[in-house]
Simulated assay, not measured.
Amino acid sequence: MFKPLLSLQRVGKEFPARGSGKGLSYKAVNEVSLDIYPGETVGLVGESGCGKSTLGYLVLNLLDLTSGEILFEGQSLANLNKAQQRALKSQIQIVFQDPQSSLNPRFKIEQIVEEPLRLNGWRDKQKRKERVRQLLDKVGLGEEYLGRFPHELSGGQRQRVAIARAISLNPKLIVLDEPTSALDVSVQAQILNLLKELQRDLNLAFLFISHNLAVVRHLSNKVAVMYYGRIIELADTNELFNNPLHPYTKVLLQSIPNINPEKPLLVELEGEMPTPHKSPLGCSFHSRCSYANDLCREAGSELQLIKEGHWVSCTRQKV
């Protein structure tokens, strides 16, 4: 049986709660467990503020865990020395939402793509230059872009440069943090097709963070729905889109124009997401759910396996 490339085990992250009293905190990520396998894309979806990006930064080891454990190829990220942390950075990369702000405006494109190579022991300048040319070609950019600055490129071209930089050290996992949301729709499709091509050629695994469910459906093998720091539903992509079980998931899918006009989901969303420092009792979604009952308000439900490959956290679903 295949072993996961990345394994999150009851991962939690707390931050101090501003303006709510000394010593109080809120859980940005709460008891999240998730596996990603080599060559797989896991889509992570949810509203702004649900903890998606924080979870991505935990995977990248840019934030310290409050609880739980993250394993990469079976090794805990919490027990790495400096040499191991450097090696990890080459194996787990990120592509940010806005390529304009993630690329150094003072560097030429050649310098931007070359920088990770230089910092990771590529001493031969000629080999670095050749590698940069290969990378730009792989993402659909020619040598004529080497001497240009980021502001001279379009948004899609800048994102191609960011992707070239991300794959420069042959990583095994890339965190894609809303990589197409700042791009025009036509350019989004080009970037998504490029990512799928690179994944096939390089056997990359993706953690694809997005609020755009149509894009997630196009790219992902399985989808995790996140709400208020928790994963509340997890399933293969087709299963989740065709048979959503959690009321919140149904609301998200209902927001996609014409997803299934013959069978409207007709789930109403009430109220707003709870404030970070006032975590509700029971299910965190109960204050917005039209199906909520006393059990939801008092106890809630752990993520449970409903059928093969489909997990959900909802008292209305029975094993």
Results as ranks from 00 to 15, higher is better:
256 I>D: 10
270 E>W: 05
265 L>C: 07
277 H>P: 03
222 K>C: 08
241 F>V: 13
294 D>T: 11
224 A>P: 00
219 L>M: 15
221 N>S: 13
251 V>S: 13
298 E>H: 12
281 L>K: 15
295 L>A: 12
270 E>Y: 09
297 R>W: 01
245 L>N: 03
292 A>H: 05
278 K>W: 02
245 L>E: 03
279 S>W: 03
239 E>Q: 15
253 L>A: 07
230 R>W: 01
267 V>M: 10
299 A>F: 14
299 A>D: 12
275 T>H: 08
217 R>M: 10
286 H>P: 04
241 F>K: 09
216 V>W: 02
283 C>S: 09
255 S>D: 11
259 I>F: 10
220 S>V: 06
273 M>G: 00
239 E>K: 14
241 F>R: 09
279 S>P: 13
233 E>W: 01
236 D>R: 12
234 L>I: 14
264 P>C: 05
285 F>I: 12
301 S>R: 10
286 H>W: 14
295 L>G: 02
283 C>F: 03
252 L>W: 00
277 H>N: 13
259 I>D: 01
218 H>F: 14
303 L>V: 03
227 Y>W: 08
281 L>S: 15
243 N>C: 04
276 P>S: 11
223 V>L: 02
294 D>V: 06
244 P>T: 12
309 G>R: 09
232 I>R: 00
264 P>K: 13
247 P>G: 14
280 P>C: 12
218 H>P: 04
290 S>G: 06
219 L>Y: 05
242 N>Q: 15
271 G>W: 03
271 G>I: 07
285 F>G: 12
266 L>W: 00
270 E>Q: 09
218 H>V: 04
308 E>W: 00
300 G>D: 14
279 S>Q: 14
251 V>G: 10
235 A>N: 08
229 G>N: 03
217 R>V: 02
276 P>K: 02
229 G>R: 03
279 S>R: 15
224 A>E: 04
222 K>R: 15
247 P>R: 04
232 I>M: 05
303 L>D: 04
303 L>A: 05
254 Q>W: 03
271 G>V: 05
280 P>I: 12
291 Y>I: 00
286 H>V: 01
246 H>V: 12
222 K>Y: 01
229 G>L: 00
247 P>H: 09
297 R>C: 00
282 G>L: 15
305 L>A: 11
259 I>W: 07
222 K>S: 08
237 T>R: 07
262 E>Y: 02
271 G>N: 09
310 H>R: 04
283 C>Y: 01
265 L>R: 14
252 L>D: 11
278 K>C: 11
241 F>Q: 05
249 T>M: 11
307 K>Y: 14
282 G>W: 14
265 L>D: 11
302 E>G: 01
254 Q>M: 11
290 S>W: 03
250 K>P: 10
224 A>V: 01
250 K>L: 07
264 P>N: 07
250 K>R: 15
289 C>W: 00
281 L>C: 10
267 V>H: 08
308 E>V: 08
266 L>G: 06
230 R>N: 14
307 K>G: 10
271 G>T: 01
302 E>K: 13
255 S>R: 02
238 N>T: 15
263 K>T: 14
